[in-house]
């Protein structure tokens, strides 16, 4: 098993280097001169442009810049934004914000998604099941930024139940954006849980457990559900990565100072260091999440062995 992990970690390093290089090259293709973007509405003064290019080594060839980035990154130095902020430090602050948002989204997916799925499977074709199916259909088909604007106007502005934007109200601030971010996958989790559980409930071992005289709750929760959750857990594991990186629009709408927001602006400004820094973190999270999910397979299903 440790040999398997070792080889996976090695692969991960290769993926990281490859991904950062590809992103690095792509940022050169972004339209517009980043120095001009810094200057806002006026044409950048040539002396200023020259000073900035020299300071951030923008005048060097692509490969030399990449090697410089890589050497810095190995020392934990991701460089600076063109307005002078330390990228590593900025990401350190922002990843925490994004992690909280992702945690809320994940919590919604688990609580609402699995809950609705179970309810639906137990009362198949009943009123609850139909209700859940309608809601999940809506969740899957309404673009999440529409959900975001509608919730912001209704829950935030009209009723004032939750803060409209920002993070200054602590955990209350994360409820609405967390729900929006998780909404699409919540519907997916509910449908997945429903299907799996409905199938499990027809299995022999469930009938056996019921025959043993166990309570309905124990049969469903301990025997049927546990087995049905295997694909759900796999899905959620991969979802962690998607939630961190998929928050670009949600963070912008709800004014949450996370990684997605930094990414969106950096792309617009053509700020190579920030784009590459954020992507490095995204890739890292994805690689780790993937590895964990693969390892989890072996845990969930003893028939899978990594020798």
């Amino acid at each position: 098993m440790s040999r398997y992990i070792m080889s996976r970690v090695l692969q991960a390093v290769l993926v990281l280097v490859g991904a950062t290089f590809v992103i690095f090259v792509i940022t050169f293709a972004l339209p517009g001169d980043p120095v001009q973007a810094l200057a806002g509405e006026r044409a950048a003064d040539p002396a200023f442009a020259e000073a900035i290019r020299a300071r951030y080594h923008l005048d060097e060839p692509l490969l030399q810049q990449y090697v410089r980035f890589l050497a810095g990154a190995l020392h934990g130095d991701l460089g600076q934004t063109y307005s002078g902020q330390d990228v590593a430090q900025m990401l350190g602050e922002r990843i925490w914000v994004s992690a909280q948002l992702a945690a809320f989204a994940l919590a919604f997916q688990i609580v609402i998604g699995v809950g609705a799925g179970v309810l639906s499977a137990l009362r198949r074709n009943g009123v609850a099941d139909t209700g859940v199916r309608i809601f999940t259909l809506a969740g899957l088909s309404i673009p999440f930024f529409v959900t975001a604007f509608v919730l912001q106007l209704v829950v935030g502005v009209k009723f004032g139940w939750l803060p409209v934007a920002g993070t200054e109200d602590g955990f209350l601030s994360y409820i609405m954006p967390g729900f929006v971010l998780g909404s699409l996958s919540t519907a997916y989790v509910a449908r997945l849980t429903r299907g799996q559980l409905a199938e499990s409930l027809r299995e022999d071992y469930v009938r056996m457990a019921t025959a043993k005289g166990l309570t309905r709750v124990r049969v469903v929760a301990h025997h049927a559900l546990r087995n049905s959750l295997i694909p759900v857990v796999t899905f959620l594991g991969l979802e962690v990565g998607a939630l961190l990186s998929g928050a670009v629009i949600t963070e912008s709408i709800f004014n949450i100072p996370g990684m997605g927001q930094a990414m969106a602006r950096a792309v617009y400004l053509g700020e190579r260091t920030t784009v590459v820094g954020v992507v490095t973190v995204f890739v890292f999270v994805y690689v780790v999440a993937n590895l964990l999910v693969d390892l989890l397979y072996a845990v969930l299903d003893p028939r899978i062995r990594y020798a």
Binding site: V157, A165, G166, F254, N255, A264
Partner: peptide, 16 residues
């Protein structure tokens, strides 16, 4: 600090 004044406008209406 906002990303867009559309969000800020909603915040103004919500009295934040």
């Amino acid at each position: 600090i906002y990303q867009s004044f559309d969000t800020a406008y909603n915040d103004l209406l919500a009295n934040n």
